[in-house]
Design a binder for these strands. Structure first.
Lengths: 240, 240
DNA sequence: GAGTGGTCTAGACCACTTC
DNA sequence: AAGTGGTCTAGACCACTCT
């Protein structure tokens, strides 16, 4: 992480919050912080806004900025993570070994909906990539992805067996930092049951959507059918 | 909506994007917009940042600000909504009639985890509220909520049959604007099957978490078991 | 080198809360 | 009335991209 002022403030305030430096649950007012850190008020505001968006603090006009009790007491029954992560959030590898088994790797013409979602033209082709993801040898999800050939013409089975996103970053200097995802629930079909080791009345979670690169180019349409015991998506939502 | 400058810019730019005023998919640079709207660059930046967070545009340092193709072409197979809504996102009533059937409305002592999550003390009590939510007479979810008595001592069955959040806003002038939610998947249990009209191998989606009031006070622990056909949660995720 | 977005400052004034 | 967060300005300088 870079040496930005507002990041340093965030980092410092988080530390101070955890050190219980504000037992009143109220942070110093913005003008005091401005003086204390010897920065402009805008920088303080930026830091506090960011923390508010993460759910760490709440700002209340006219009275102050307050610490979210749940952030402090992390013995909450919900493992509060504080931020909107999301991409591969449901398959975090807590020290477990990730594995990938490629089920299909082929090239097909883009369907109509692919052309719309991936911004393709008639005659364009896409890779079809089906993979079974494992965690400690245990199958956790079936992932079907479609990636335009013209975005990654050199894709190979070897790459697909590892991480496509990492390859993209190395090869094209682009990161996948954005996604639009829809989360649903469905009974398992026969293939789910075979590949994920489910019984007929054990369901799957479905996460489907689009991944975007840094510059906004849609990179991949993805559909993930996730073993119900490994499906766990967390979000902090804040509306105005 | 108030008459804020950055909001006006957002509104205007959205309109212009939809009117196809930027066929190159690139917005004018920030300094041009500053001149055009006759405002400070900070205000332009604020508007653009907000739009970027909604997924409407992508900013690329050194080259410009670009429109997300999917925002424009809303015939995408994913119904792109552009924003991180979330609370009661899965039960949007597209002209359908909402109904509520109260299954249980009682007072119980707070359990240990409730005391932690709702910031309660020994001896505190909570309302236990179980409700079946209907959409056009069709049951869609079983909602179990726990609300500290001391936050809403005058809660009644009549209120609970309508909207608790609306009551809270009217009575206490507080809004529920934040939530921390976890989304999971599970096979339906016998009660789910009876109340939601499911068969043994039809699953439910589970959304559980905490709702907060404006000032950060945890207001309710909620657990929703949702009919799988009505479970649909959408998010736009953007990481740095 | 020119253009574009990112960070930061210093300060003015407004809106809301609390006393 | 005093204190607090919200909005907005005007301008400086930096980092990156494109050519």
């Amino acid at each position: 992480m870079k040496d930005l002022i507002y990041r340093k403030i965030i980092h410092d305030l988080k530390k101070r919050i955890f050190n219980n430096e504000f037992p009143s649950m109220r942070l110093p007012d913005e003008r005091s912080l401005t003086a204390e850190y010897n920065v402009s008020r805008s920088s303080v505001k930026r830091a506090l806004s960011s923390m508010a968006q993460e759910g760490i603090v709440f700002k209340k006009r006219g009275s102050g900025t307050f610490i979210n009790p749940l952030y402090l007491k992390s013995q909450s029954s919900f493992n509060y993570e504080g931020s909107n992560i999301g991409i591969t959030d449901s398959l975090k590898s807590n020290g477990k070994k990730q594995g990938i088994k490629v089920l299909d790797f082929s090239v097909i013409p883009a369907t109509k909906s692919m052309k719309t979602d991936l911004f393709l033209n008639d005659g364009d082709f896409v890779y079809k990539i089906r993979r079974l993801r494992l965690l400690d040898e245990e199958p956790i999800m079936i992932e079907t992805g479609y990636i335009p050939i013209k975005i990654a013409p050199e894709l190979s089975k070897a790459i697909v067996e590892k991480s496509i996103f990492n390859y993209l970053e190395d090869a094209k200097g682009q990161q996948v930092t954005r996604s639009y995802m829809s989360i649903q629930v469905a009974p398992s079909n026969q293939e789910d049951q075979e590949l994920l080791g489910l019984t007929a009345n054990e369901p799957v979670g479905i996460m489907s959507g689009i991944f975007f690169m840094d510059d906004g180019t849609p990179f991949e349409i993805s559909n993930m059918r996730i073993h119900y015991r490994h499906m766990n998506y967390s979000t902090f939502v804040s509306v105005d």
